[in-house]
């Protein structure tokens, strides 16, 4: 059994190497598919982590009118506490809002000193659970708060965050669709390249068939050849991804410093890499199988 396996791998490698001109072609198509999928996973993972982080910070702010009465304030607070998605409420007074502004924008601080009175409203800053209830319930809450007496304005971050998430979902599905097409193209290329190398060795295949070699024995090396193309293609793609990230990372973080923490982009996990290589080998295996089944027959 082990002997048979090394025979397949040896012969598969020989066949791959003899047809390396064409093998490069299928190797590259696989590499492109794995590259796109890998990029998708890296960017998607980063986007998900970033959005999670944003979701955890304050999302719902209720600004109070300067003339809001204590009763109106507590009515608003009660309404907020009644919502299960709300996990925390920070009360920010007018003075605190002013102090915060002066701290965050020291350049503009002198301007505020000239203002006759504090222009900043008091507010409730509400934290929502990351996996909190449906956006629709929160939308209703925000709308209801806006009409309550004593409320000047309601800012609800979750709305555009939701839009961002659904945009992300859309990009993801387009990406997976593209990957599926690329995988199909790669599988077809492998099939054709393996058929080409079987054609180059048709005499040998005919002889082995006539001598009575088991069909698995004849086809095995070519299936292996497909797997080698897949595996090497995936390794090539991962290498390109890694190098590309190392080269692009400094530029990206310089470009978008502050907005996104691009320095924190993580490369694929070992499990994900192993999965990609295994998947590419499976695609190569499939391509090799189709070629071998069609080309080598007992009669």
């Amino acid at each position: 059994m082990i002997g048979g396996l090394t025979y397949f791998v040896d012969e598969g490698w020989t066949s791959f190497w003899r047809g390396r001109g064409a093998s490069i072609l299928s190797l590259l198509t696989i590499a492109i598919a794995v590259f796109v999928l890998g990029l998708l996973l890296i960017v998607g993972g980063h986007a998900r982590r970033t959005i999670d982080q944003w979701s955890r910070s304050a999302e719902l702010s209720v600004y109070l009118a300067d003339g809001a009465t204590p009763d109106e304030r507590s009515a608003v607070e009660r309404a907020l506490r009644a919502e299960p998605a709300v996990i925390g409420i920070d009360v920010v007074s007018k003075a605190q809002a002013l102090a915060r502004f002066r701290r965050d924008f020291p350049d503009l601080a002198p301007a505020t000193a000239q203002a006759p009175d504090n222009p900043f409203p008091a507010s409730f800053e509400v934290r929502l659970g990351a996996s909190s209830a449906s956006g629709a319930a929160l939308d209703r809450l925000a709308a209801r708060l806006a009409t309550m007496p004593g409320v000047a304005d309601v800012r609800f971050d979750r709305r555009w965050l939701d839009r961002l998430v659904s945009l992300g979902e859309f990009v993801r599905w387009v990406g997976f669709g593209l990957t599926a097409i690329l995988v199909l193209a790669a599988a077809l290329t492998v099939t054709n390249v393996v058929r080409l190398s079987m054609h180059a060795r048709r005499d040998e295949i005919e002889i082995m068939t006539l001598v009575g070699a088991p069909m698995a024995f004849i086809r095995g090396p070519f299936v292996c050849e497909g797997m080698i193309q897949g595996g090497l293609g995936a390794v090539l793609a991962l290498g390109a991804l890694y190098a590309g990230m190392a080269l692009a990372a400094p530029h990206l973080s310089a470009m978008a410093a502050g907005l996104f923490d691009l320095g924190a982009i993580r490369f694929l996990s070992w499990t994900a890499m192993a999965g990609l290589v295994a998947g590419a080998m499976a695609v190569g295996c499939l391509g090799g199988l189709v070629a071998a089944w069609r080309t080598a027959r007992p009669r």
Binding site: T209, G212, P214
Partner: peptide, 18 residues
């Protein structure tokens, strides 16, 4: 067919060596 072929020997005009 393959099993059967293993029990029979064949010789061809063009030798058919690998």
């Amino acid at each position: 067919i393959q099993r059967y072929r293993r029990t029979v020997g064949f010789v061809f005009q063009d030798f058919k060596l690998v």
